[in-house]
Design a binder for these strands. Structure first.
Lengths: 162, 162
DNA sequence: CGCTTGCTTGGAGTGCACTCCAACTCTCTA
DNA sequence: TAGAGAGTTGGAGTGCACTCCAAGCAAGCG
């Protein structure tokens, strides 16, 4: 369920090389385009948009992973485009296995303001190293999988020849 | 703790491109070289060797993730080189996020014998797709991280100039 | 012989990241 | 104004993958 977004991401197949800088954006292009001119979304709209459940969105807020979310006079949440941008970063980081605790830490730093730039840089740099490690790891497993699958495929082809 | 092995893997930095086939081996070169001529290891030796805890090794056996492990006359486990090979595959698959349940399924198929080749092929192929998806995902997050880190680094350099 | 070290077991406990529940309020449409 | 449907809360429950515990056995050493 949480993985919905990743499938869209993967459509570009194995594109492992870094894309040119011009193509990089902060808020990743999302599956459900944002209705223009709106800036107040209900929790279920955001759930639909991000692929996260309403439960999870409330939980994220409870644990301090969201900046302050607006409320109507009766206490219902109204998310803004800024919130969607933030969630898009958060889901990205989540998909790459950053622990929720680390993301909460990052969110706290963002709340504090510019004085935390260098610590934020450190945090993200550490995570980037982690992601690079994981890519290398996955790549090496891919080689093993190729090898094993080849063996099974060869066996199948051999048995099909008769 | 379980990640010990991955760090060795990552030493080759970002090497995301597929390596030549000649370099691919089934049993990955391990951190602790196997003492030659031995073929009976205690659980703690195997723990040391694989980076898994003795607890985890016992648990793997309990849930059916290990082929039958030899015992001494007093009931202590003695692992063989074959077991180490198997564990090296298992840890690889684990590090790439294959669920334990799927690995148990695979282990069952291996136990049954050659008649399950095609299903094993299917299982591994599905996982390979998964791994490819994940690599693409990680890569796209890497781009976002680069972008964000650049911003923080620029801010830092700007403030350092005075 | 006593002590330490290492192994055995089933079952209970842990940490993470949700996920759901009960009981309630609010909004909207007929 | 009634009723459906969507929202609210704190707290409990779930699933995964370990991780630990208690109680006990076995081998080696001084």
């Amino acid at each position: 369920m949480t993985v919905t977004q990743s499938e869209a991401v993967a459509n570009g197949a194995i594109a492992t090389r870094a894309r040119p800088a011009a193509e990089r954006t902060c808020a990743a292009p999302s599956v459900h385009p944002r209705p223009a001119g709106r800036d107040r979304y209900t929790i279920s709209e955001v759930a639909e948009h991000t692929g996260l459940s309403a439960h999870t969105l409330r939980w994220y807020e409870r644990i301090g992973l969201m900046p302050h979310v607006d409320r109507t006079h009766t206490g219902q949440r109204r998310f803004t485009n800024r919130d969607l941008d933030w969630l898009s970063l958060v889901t990205k980081l989540r998909l790459t296995g950053m622990p929720v605790a680390d993301m909460v830490r990052y969110a706290e730093l963002v709340r504090v303001g510019e004085s935390t730039f260098s610590e934020r840089e450190r945090l993200l740099t550490a995570h980037r190293e982690d992601v690079r490690r994981r890519i290398a790891e996955l790549q090496s497993t891919l080689d093993i999988l190729d090898y094993k699958i080849d063996i099974y495929a060869d066996a199948r082809r051999a048995s099909e020849r008769f």
